[in-house]
């Protein structure tokens, strides 16, 4: 029974090795020394408390977006619409949060705004599920389209009055609506939203494995025709799962709006939805894996900033893309090597 897990571990190690080689080659091609670039990347991330805090802050949003993707993938669905849900939820939390009384207590503000974030995210991706379940429209296409709409809508609403006069962002949240920063990482944006992210990732793993809902969703992911034939409410589950995924994506607003900026602005969390999808694809069904890949991508992202003076940070993006590619092909390479061993 452990053979597949061992094979997966081997594949990940192989992918890591290939990615490291690709990184070195890219840095060498830029005329820099890989060793010293890596040292600087490390120093700029895990080398200081500030750097480590920034990594944790970025990992929080990636983990939440990753959980959103992982939830949908369990049912065999690609949640491309997370990006839009994140943008719309952030605006809603910013706009509603700014209208709370200045003296609001965190005991009221935190749960209220978390509820706003989750329900706006869920409502935003609900149509994707309905289109898929009732009309057979592919969720990737609807996701791309709703992302476009979300981008335009956020810009429009900010321009038409949600933004503060003479600015491009909403009015600041009252102090009671902002999240507490993490003490050990002074100056960084790391905040308590990271515990929400961890809780969500772990809770989903439990729901997926242990509950009727999770088992039915896994069955749909394995075969929707068989699930339908055995009487599982496939359409309803698909709608529920995409809405749940949107709700989790919406929680990114806790980290970015309530934990970091204190207001919402256009493009605040842009790209996180897709990084999360990549993290989920790498992690498979594992919750520990998802937290690890979120940290990994966050490290590369923050590290890219710290080496930007010497090599363009886009090289880091290239490496990230190669990692995904290698992870996709590594199991096949491992299989081939195994076959030759036997022959």
């Amino acid at each position: 029974m452990n053979a597949p897990r061992a094979a997966r571990t081997r594949a990940i190690l192989l992918a890591a090795l290939l990615s490291a080689i690709a990184f070195e080659l890219a840095v060498l091609a830029w005329g820099e020394s890989p060793g010293s670039i890596l040292a600087q990347l490390f120093a700029g991330t895990w080398g200081t408390r500030f750097g480590a805090g920034q990594v944790l802050f970025k990992a929080t949003s990636i983990a939440l977006a990753g959980a959103a993707a992982q939830i949908a993938l369990r049912a065999g669905l690609f949640q491309i619409g997370a990006e839009g849900a994140i943008a719309v939820s952030a605006l809603a939390v910013g706009a509603i949060g700014a209208r709370l009384p200045a003296s609001v207590s965190p005991i009221v503000a935190w749960p209220l705004l978390a509820l706003v974030a989750a329900s706006v995210g869920a409502l935003w991706t609900l149509p994707i599920g309905v289109l898929r379940a009732r009309f057979g429209a592919h969720e990737v296409i609807s996701g791309i389209m709703t992302n476009k709409i979300a981008g335009a809508l956020v810009g429009y609403l900010l321009a038409r009055g949600l933004a503060e006069r003479a600015s491009v962002h909403t009015a600041p949240l009252p102090p009671g609506a902002t999240l507490v920063r993490l003490g050990p990482f002074p100056g960084s944006a790391a905040n308590v939203a990271i515990f929400v992210a961890i809780a969500v990732v772990v809770a989903w793993a439990w729901i997926a494995r242990r509950t009727v809902f999770g088992r039915e969703v896994s069955a749909i992911g394995a075969s929707d025709t068989v699930s339908l034939a055995t009487g599982i409410a496939v359409g309803r589950r698909q709608i529920e799962i995409l809405a749940l995924s949107g709700a989790v994506a919406g929680l990114c607003a806790l980290n970015d709006v309530m934990g970091y900026k204190g207001y919402a602005e256009e493009g605040l969390s842009s790209g996180v939805g897709f990084t999360g999808l990549a993290a989920a694809l790498l992690a498979g069904r594992s919750s520990v894996g998802l937290l690890a890949t979120a940290l990994f991508f966050a490290t590369l992202s923050q590290g890219g900033l710290s080496i930007n003076a010497r090599i363009p940070m886009e090289i880091v993006d290239v490496v990230v893309a190669l990692v995904i590619l290698f992870v996709a092909v590594a199991p096949r390479i491992d299989e081939k090597l195994g076959e030759e061993d036997r022959a």
Binding site: A219, A222, S223, T225, V226, S227, A229
Partner: peptide, 9 residues
């Protein structure tokens, strides 16, 4: 395969 069993479950 269409209506009876899902291979990976």
């Amino acid at each position: 395969h269409a209506h009876g069993i899902a291979d990976e479950l």
